[in-house]
Amino acid sequence: MIPAVLPPKDLTGRTIDLKLKPGWWYDEARGVFLNADGESFVPRSLRRNARIVYKVPDLARASPQALSDAEKDLRSYLQVILPTSHGTKALVKQVQSWPAIEEAHLAPQISLPTAAAAQRLPGRAGKKR
């Protein structure tokens, strides 16, 4: 038994993490990827209600001159947030083919690094669950 406490299901399986290629950025208002050479890409294959957001929006909006190398790196990460987990894995391959994208993968399956909360004594707090 590997100790872990998983999160509620609605928090998992519906996010794709992606990283922009150097020189690309994402215009959240217009829903379009752009680069300094004037190229653009509109992710039309996304299903309704899907969103693309910067992972660290404050840094994405900040002037890069004021940022450390690590903060500049953080500007290039985005998330595709889907309404449900259905079809997420298949969508990863599509996202990986987008011209603006350096890498894309399912968001990590996060959990808590402890034993599942099954250690209560009968008749005590365990009854309340």
Binding site: L11, V53, K55, V56, Q79, A107, P108, I110
Partner: peptide, 10 residues
């Protein structure tokens, strides 16, 4: 949890 999903970097 931010925007309804995990985003530890943020």
């Amino acid at each position: 949890v931010i925007n309804g999903v995990f985003n530890l970097a943020q």
